[in-house]
Nucleic acid binder design. Structure first.
Length: 474
RNA sequence: GGCGCUAUAGUGUAAUUGGUUAACACGCCGCCCUCUCAAGGCGGAGAGUACGGGUUCGAUCCCCGUUAGCGCUACCA
């Protein structure tokens, strides 16, 4: 498939949401797979609702996901001439006509039809206007939109790469507006012209555009241009199977970044929503995703966003990513929590990396490094609510622990082996279970009932802190 | 209301051109490991493929209908 060119064309009327991100990802994967180009275009023809801030947010979201674009961003608002001249041409060729119906009138007609439970489509009032009538209205300076002339009879069908053959009757397609009375193009004119000019070969977009496609194909034909291939991807729904929205919590991709998801994990998760490689792989890296991606692997039914699986995937990435790669993320978290010290990327960097390795298999989200790592970085940590009653009940601990502390203090080398040997030997001597001491030590050393293996904790914490905390316990 | 699309365990996905005990993952339960938890390993419950008809020797897969969900039905995109 030579010269594949695809695009992601969000409108900046909102942030980059999960659905948009997934569409962008599929386009990006498709482009990479075919060594084609991924183009970014901002559809900002709705001046009322578009904003520069949203544009910024969208770019930020894409960058976070690592979806770099090869061309753009192009802005529709900067291509007004093209749209207007195309509309003029269509008008001259009688493929479109001027419509003087006011929006109020149209709205009233639509409402009346709805009330009478009748199907409504534009009734073609202005399609029947004579030359003279048009000139008269124009002379009066009446505002006019330009509508496309949809054939009154017949059918249109196209081969969707995901959904197969889609058929529509012209009877159900109204004479849609191409150019608004303020001279701005509508979505249909905009996309088609842009996709033509940008030589887009495959239009990969949300399934909510399926019903729009026939109109656009009609436009391609009227313009005498080749028609790209269409691939519509199923929508992503919330847990209640309604369209994903603010009601379902975070829907902007940057919100997931802020909650502590890794971009690789999020991207992997997104790829699996509505697509599968055809075999049973789930955790897939970028290259693997690119290699395996194909339009054939996209399925037709809507997908439900499963937060638990996202979290699981994130934990998988967290535990398998080398500490050095996790470092910048963890650093940012520690800074936010006020636990950062410049030494951690200087003289104590190796130690800090080992701490990351210690914590990462138990982390599900980035902030877990803070909650589980605090006791290693500071003496200001809380003792978890029910931890003492669970593991510090045994009265003999009061004597045992300080004595153990002294033994550990005397160790010439404070490593995993010597800590373990010392504690177990001590337990034998005192005829108590090692577990008793271990669990009690865990609460004292980390403030938690749940933490990594105790000897690793001791080793990472260091001799001084370990001894102090065991001693200071009671 | 009209038109379009979809329908496999709670969720995400598999199931060569119709022939499988309908598979895998998340989640849930249990066991192992073990100093707790996570990870890991092992096992279990959970769908007879929305429902009803056809076609066929045989349908998750093809056709029709019903139902449900979603989408479109704007001078939004």
């Amino acid at each position: 498939m030579p010269d594949v060119r695809v695009r992601f064309a969000p409108s900046p009327t909102g942030y980059l949401h999960v659905g948009g991100a997934r569409t962008a990802l599929f386009n990006w994967l498709f482009a990479k797979h075919h060594e084609g180009k991924f183009i970014l275009r901002i559809e900002d023809t709705d001046v009322e609702r578009s904003s520069a801030e949203m544009v910024h947010g969208i770019l930020e979201g894409l960058s976070w996901l690592g979806l770099e674009w090869d061309e753009g961003p192009y802005f529709q608002s900067q291509r007004m001439q093209q749209y207007q001249s195309a509309a003029r041409k269509l008008l001259q060729e009688q493929k479109a006509y001027a419509c003087f119906c006011s929006q109020e009138l149209l709205a009233a007609k639509r409402e009346a039809a709805a009330k009478a439970k009748l199907a409504w489509k534009y009734d073609g009032t202005c399609r029947k206007l004579s030359e003279a009538e048009i000139r008269e209205k124009e002379g009066q300076g009446q505002a006019r939109a330009i509508r496309f002339k949809v054939p009154s009879e017949g059918k249109i069908h196209f081969e969707d790469q995901v959904f197969g053959t889609i058929e529509h009757d012209f009877q159900n397609i109204e004479d849609f507006v191409l150019l608004r009375s303020d001279g701005m193009p509508t979505y249909h004119l905009g996309v088609v012209l842009d996709d033509i000019d940008m030589r887009i070969t495959h239009v990969i977009r949300g399934a909510d555009h399926i019903s729009n496609t026939p109109k656009q194909i009609l436009l391609y034909r009227a313009l005498g241009q080749p028609i790209p291939l269409f691939a519509h991807v199923p929508l992503i729904l919330g847990p209640d199977k309604t369209r994903l929205s603010k009601r379902h919590g975070a829907t902007s991709v940057t919100a997931y970044r802020d909650q502590g998801y890794l971009p690789e994990a999020f991207r992997n998760f997104l790829a699996l929503l509505g697509w599968a490689p055809g075999d049973e792989r789930e955790k897939m890296g970028t290259q693997e995703l690119i290699q395996s991606f194909s339009l054939q692997g996209i399925n037709k039914s809507n997908a439900v966003f499963n937060l638990e699986k996202l979290e699981w995937l994130n934990s998988q990435y967290l535990s398998s990513t080398p500490a050095a790669e996790l470092f910048p993320y963890v650093k940012a978290e520690m800074e936010k929590a006020g636990l950062w010290d410049a030494e951690y990327e200087g003289s104590r960097k190796a130690w800090f990396l080992s701490l990351i390795d210690l914590l990462k298999t138990r982390a599900r989200l980035l902030p877990d490094f803070v909650t589980n790592g605090r006791a290693f970085l500071s003496d200001e940590y809380e003792i978890e609510a029910h931890a003492p009653e669970k593991f510090l009940q045994e009265p003999s601990l009061r004597l045992l622990l300080p004595e153990l502390a002294s033994r550990l203090e005397g160790l010439p080398r404070f490593d995993l082996e010597s800590c373990e040997f010392t504690l177990r030997e001590f337990a034998d001597e005192k005829q108590v279970k090692a577990g008793l001491l271990i669990n009690a030590a865990r609460v004292l050393l980390t403030g938690k009932a749940v933490a990594p293996g105790i000897f690793q904790v001791m080793h990472t914490l260091g001799q001084k802190r370990t001894v102090e905390r065991l001693r200071k316990a009671f």
